[in-house]
Design a protein around this nucleic acid. Sequence first.
DNA 1: CATGAATGAGTCTTCATTCAT
DNA 2: CATGAATGAAGACTCATTCAT
Lengths: 196, 196, 196, 196
Amino acid sequence: MKKNKPKYKQIIDAAVIVIAENGYHSAQVSKIAKTAGVADGTIYLYFKNKEDILVSVFEEKMGIFVENLEKQITGISYAEKKLYTLVDMHFKHLASDFHLAIVTQLELRQSNKELRLRINAVLKGYLAIIDHIVKTGMETSEFRKDLDVRLARQMIFGTIDETVTSWVMNDQKYDLIQLVKPVHQLLINGCGYTKA
Amino acid sequence: MKKNKPKYKQIIDAAVIVIAENGYHSAQVSKIAKTAGVADGTIYLYFKNKEDILVSVFEEKMGIFVENLEKQITGISYAEKKLYTLVDMHFKHLASDFHLAIVTQLELRQSNKELRLRINAVLKGYLAIIDHIVKTGMETSEFRKDLDVRLARQMIFGTIDETVTSWVMNDQKYDLIQLVKPVHQLLINGCGYTKA
Amino acid sequence: MKKNKPKYKQIIDAAVIVIAENGYHSAQVSKIAKTAGVADGTIYLYFKNKEDILVSVFEEKMGIFVENLEKQITGISYAEKKLYTLVDMHFKHLASDFHLAIVTQLELRQSNKELRLRINAVLKGYLAIIDHIVKTGMETSEFRKDLDVRLARQMIFGTIDETVTSWVMNDQKYDLIQLVKPVHQLLINGCGYTKA
Amino acid sequence: MKKNKPKYKQIIDAAVIVIAENGYHSAQVSKIAKTAGVADGTIYLYFKNKEDILVSVFEEKMGIFVENLEKQITGISYAEKKLYTLVDMHFKHLASDFHLAIVTQLELRQSNKELRLRINAVLKGYLAIIDHIVKTGMETSEFRKDLDVRLARQMIFGTIDETVTSWVMNDQKYDLIQLVKPVHQLLINGCGYTKA
DNA sequence: CATGAATGAGTCTTCATTCAT
DNA sequence: CATGAATGAAGACTCATTCAT
């Protein structure tokens, strides 16, 4: 895959739009090709098949995001602040790209077992960051020592994901970014010490 | 739709199995019919189309579950205990039906906008129960007074859902029911008072 | 076939309406049954299959018509007057039954080879009357002696049929009965002696 | 529709044969494709659906015929000779293409209202020619001045059509072309002056 | 005679993918 | 590299007909 060629990006960008507007199953390869301004066959010079386009969209768009996220979070000392940055960047990322949010929260889920494995591979990097935050919090005693890291991660990811999905399914009619603070508070509390 | 006819239930039950084992898109109607022991055409006496089968499975199975849940929870006084019962029943319900868990967590998500609306209609009852718990907790001062009910609901639902999905995607190789207590603790903390 | 039973006629009458309003292929047997006020299965106590209904409509409605026609025409001496009666009765018959005209001119043609044979059997009686008229005309010297009876019959039938079909396809928006005289004139001329 | 592509004509020609031999409803698209030597899907690059094939056959074959007919007839001065040419070319056209005659006279009639509209659009050109002939005859005093053009046209078309249909339904076992002269005579008489 | 729930055969159409140019 | 015409597999759905009651 020659990921630096302009056509590769053209197709990725066209795919986000076409899939967001039509749904994955109604997004014909020929429609993506037309939107990208290339021939149908050209798609197959850059992608193995239709599913590959979908996953590549995720890999490409989320891959960059996770890289940025990692850089930002590494430089922060406290888990609380790390977690705030995570929620903040996550919400801002999707709030800034209407179509990508739809693809990520709705269309990408319409995939079979095989696809989900590749998606999970990408997600692993993101989940590792969450794990890192949780462990940091336990070390700094910001969080309870007896936290089950996997469960804490599932709460953090589940809450963030559900919040974004609800926002998308409500046609993004309220401001997602305003939810950063209260969501962060919920998560911090969840990981913190039980009230006396 | 004659929902009391035995054939209706036969088809629903067959659909759960066939969809879980093959995935929604590979689950031919004829395969469901054969498993149910009826003719292909009989399916269409009880369901409008293939999608209708999928949603009906959810409506039927989750409808009963939500009813039971409501009854149990209404009789409980404290939010903490209510929430425990919710998590407990949710996990037990899906842990007891291997196929249903797959359909609920994975296959049902592969649906188009129209279908999701019907699914959401069913979910509304479930989410209303969560809302009720959160409000109860706020009234009894078990939970913070300044909770955003919608966000709290999204945390609770998101955490539970993500926990179940992870468990399904890991082929249910660990015991979901053992997670009731720690998940409950995370959620109670999330909704409770900030540590000193 | 117990053709005197009321249900037989009920079904025939329902069929004319349903077929006229929906077209033969969209006229489901169940719709005819419902309109006739009988169960689906009852249809098959009176008719062999769906095609049989269609032909029976024709046999029943046209059979009576041809009988009447025969009686009337036999009593007439001259071919010209016989032909006038034929055109007159034909146009009046179809002009008086909106639905029957549609079935006869349009829907009945949508049949396969086998059906057309049965229809032709019924038509034979009608065509025999035309033949009789032509022969009478040749004997009385009203018509040319060298007429080809078959061709004359085809002109007469073709002209009448085409006139009615055009009228049906134009949604019967002009008065068919007013055409009796001019059509009769055309046919008489066609069969008559060459000018000068 | 790329009507100049060879495949378009291949499919049209295959359709005439397959439909004539099997009847429209038993003529599977896959059979037409096979006969045309193309893949099933290729059909749909050139035709909207199965019905579109049927009408296109008529449009294509009759369109050319009507064009030729127009050219020939325009060059003729007298209505009588014009009419002779019409009948002559009509009979010769269908007598020379066994399969086309079947499709035109029998299968094409098995179409629904929507289809008949497209068929009528093509027929309009043909009927216009007949009208032109009738009017010419009235101007040259070959025909009666008081002819109703529409009725005359219906007689001419009805007679020709019925003659061809009878010939097709009798398995074309007699010579259609020998009927040109007598049929022409019938029509000329019909339009001409009443015998003194 | 009458019912109507159940049957199951039969086919058009889509669209991801290929490959000759 | 790029094209786009051609491919062909695959399956949901309808509805005439049956038969146990």
